Simulated scan of single mutants.
Amino acid sequence: MSQRGEEHRLSGLDGFAFPVSCTAGGETRARAVAQRMERAVAWLDGQVGTPSVPALFVVGPEEWDGIALGLPYGMPHVEDGRIVVGQRPGPFWQTLLDAAAPGLPAESRQRLAAVYGEPPDLGTFADLLVVHELGHVTHGEGWPGHSVGFWLRELAANLCLHGYVAEVEPESMPVLETVYDVIWETGPGPWPVRDLHCMADSLAGDGTNYVWFQFGLQILARRLWESADTTALRGVVALLRGPAQPFGNVVDVLATFDRHAARAVLDWPHLGNAVTRDEVRNASSA
């Protein structure tokens, strides 16, 4: 864990039910992040409950190493009673796009540009991830040291994120979805770790392999939400709040919300058309 010697350089923001600290001069940006976090806390509390609300730190590169927990600058994360986000987008997101670039057709590049600008700036996407980090608060430790628990915790947090955007900030849905759809469609070529049970191993290196896993889980979260919305969210969070379960039991629970999403977990990473929106709509209208 990083030493926290930089906290004395930070300014505090009043007006929130949770502590908010930011790099001096970044109060406007920090207030916007805190307001989204405030909305997300209220929504999540109504869905699954939030046992506690972490302090929020919105910091620049100079303070990052003293506040964060060893992640690249600008990568939102939660641990030790705090959520840490960047004062501005970090270079990690460009590293991700560069890694995917060889497999991106012209149409995919156009989709990215239409939502994130040209060249694409994923800062607006990264800003949504504060809700993902709050999602981790809802399920607590959630089977620590368990390989199934590792990816299931991320799926739960992604369900929280997708549900929040769908119900509270629907105008942000293209910002949330476009990058993970585009990156996932390139296939797993640039990333060597692909087995879902080895997701923790993908944290090594520059982190892009890990985000590839996250994007696949975000697609599964969308499928579960569009099939069973809050029922799926509450079910996955409740699962993680209970004792650890074997892989087969987890798949069986997911199948009660959406059998195709459960099948996609078994077939990972070959999600294919099993998680497309069209299939959900066709099934619901049949």
Results as ranks from 00 to 15, higher is better:
Thr50Asn: 05
Thr208Lys: 01
Asn273Trp: 13
Thr138Ala: 15
Ala113Pro: 04
Leu240Met: 02
Trp212Cys: 02
Glu167Met: 10
Pro51Asp: 00
Thr124Cys: 12
Gly242Thr: 01
Pro51Leu: 10
Asp127His: 11
Leu271Lys: 01
Met1Phe: 11
Arg281Asn: 09
Pro174Gln: 04
Arg82Tyr: 07
Pro243Tyr: 02
Gly49Gln: 09
Arg241Phe: 13
Glu226Gln: 11
Phe213Asp: 00
Thr231Phe: 15
Asp267Gly: 00
Leu97Lys: 00
Gly74Met: 09
Ala232Pro: 12
Pro91Trp: 03
Pro102Tyr: 02
Asn282Lys: 14
Glu185His: 03
Gly49Glu: 07
Phe213Thr: 00
Tyr210Phe: 15
Leu13Val: 08
Gly140Trp: 12
Ala42Ser: 14
Leu129Ile: 15
Ala101Trp: 02
Val168Cys: 07
Ala262His: 05
Arg82Gln: 14
Glu6Trp: 07
Pro72Arg: 04
Ser11Asp: 15
Leu155Pro: 01
Ala114Met: 02
Leu240Phe: 06
Ala232Leu: 11
Leu134Trp: 11
Leu266Phe: 03
Glu107Tyr: 10
Phe92His: 11
Pro89Asp: 03
Ala68Ile: 02
Leu161Lys: 09
Ala244Pro: 04
Cys160Val: 11
Val253Ser: 09
Leu254Ser: 09
Phe215Met: 07
Asp252His: 14
Cys22Leu: 03
Gln110Tyr: 00
Val148Ile: 03
Ala274Arg: 14
Ala264Cys: 06
Asp65Tyr: 04
His162Gly: 06
Leu161Thr: 12
Arg109Ile: 03
His8Asn: 11
His8Pro: 03
Ala204Tyr: 01
Val85Asn: 10
His139Cys: 13
Ala283Trp: 08
Thr50Val: 15
Ala261Pro: 09
